[in-house]
Amino acid sequence: MRTARIACLTLALGTMLAACSGGPVSEQSPAGVEERQPGAQPGAQTQPVKPGAVARVDLTTKPGARSPLTDPNNILSRRSIFYDYDSYDVKDQYKDLVEAHARYLRDNPRSKMLIQGNTDERGSREYNVSLGQRRSDSVKKMLLLLGAKEEQVESVSLGEEKPRSEGHDEQAWSQNRRSDILYQGEY
């Protein structure tokens, strides 16, 4: 009886953690039921726990427990690419990042990505929408060359409308000339 209750609790907890991990739905595997030691029968009456009779439940090793997309130690958690003024070239320093995301899309064909291009505040708002689009398009193009599929990636532009930094100098502008990568569920 109690074991069944624990199993239920574990199941619920596992589902919750998986839901919280922010990983794409396709990545979630159903939380497993704990391994039971022989003799631990459902409905067994209270017995003192003997050393060596405790079943270890380790959620941290289960797939999807911590999504590689949000693990700060994983390159996939890096989502921003910054640009020089009036440029949409993805600089060498971001090649690893783009390659890692391409690999992830290849390995997870059901996952989907939105790339939002951004510009600094100077000039026409509409022209900046087009410049931001060129930035996100350039990232998308790289991802497709590296094996991601067209239907997995949408590139769009926020122009100058969603600045990360509200300042009006080069330091702020350099933060705002940017492409951001978001996975389904994050936008």
Binding site: L114, Q116, L158, L182, Y187
Partner: peptide, 9 residues
Amino acid sequence: YVSFENKKP
């Protein structure tokens, strides 16, 4: 007009 309410224009 253009609205960004869907995270894109």
